[in-house]
């Protein structure tokens, strides 16, 4: 999981609603950038987390261990006023909303963004897919 915020994980402490966008294809960095920009422009959005297939910086096995991979999809992306190093091909996007009342409105906005950017299809679900308060593991790894 990659948090799109540069800060430590930002737990709400309560199970706010989450939207799961599951594209039918793994996304390129350009599409991810545009998608995140579109989603971030929706005012009801509190936080976005992305999942995907990791793109290593270096070859980690075989006879050429240690040489750079130079994958073109592993690059810095910008959205809103933030930038992050994208280290994966994104396969799922989890959008946490600010409150329960904004679900329908946010869903409509996100659907519009997805229809435009994901012509190969996607599924969009509402639920709660990740933890909303720090776990023991977070304390041990000093992530909160």
């Amino acid at each position: 999981m990659q948090n799109t915020s540069n800060s430590a994980r930002n737990y709400a402490g309560e199970p706010l609603p989450e939207l799961k966008i599951f594209p039918n294809r793994l996304l390129k960095a350009d599409t991810t950038e545009a998608l995140l920009s579109g989603i971030y422009s929706i005012p009801q959005v509190r936080q976005i987390n992305v999942h995907g297939e990791t793109l290593p910086a270096k070859v980690k096995s075989g006879p050429h261990t240690g040489i750079p991979v130079n994958h073109p999809e592993r690059r810095v992306i910008r959205y809103g006023d933030q930038e992050i190093l994208l280290t994966m091909m994104v396969g799922a996007i989890f959008v946490e909303l600010k409150d329960y009342d904004s679900v329908d409105e946010a869903l409509e906005g996100i659907k519009k963004v997805c229809d435009e950017l994901l012509p190969f299809g996607y599924t969009l679900d509402v639920g709660r897919y990740s933890k909303f308060r720090p776990s023991l593991n977070d304390h041990l790894k000093s992530r909160c």
């Binding site: 594209p23 039918n24 294809r25 793994l26 996304l27 390129k28 599409t31 297939e53 990791t54 793109l55 290593p56 070859v59 991979v69 130079n70 994958h71 073109p72 999809e73 091909m89 396969g91 190969f120």
Partner: peptide
């Protein structure tokens, strides 16, 4: 070799972490 069970990328290619 990871990638055989991953979704295809936007160009329809099987995922390859080493490109």
């Amino acid at each position: 070799v990871h990638g055989h069970a991953c979704r295809l990328d936007e160009n329809g290619l099987m995922f390859d972490a080493w490109q």
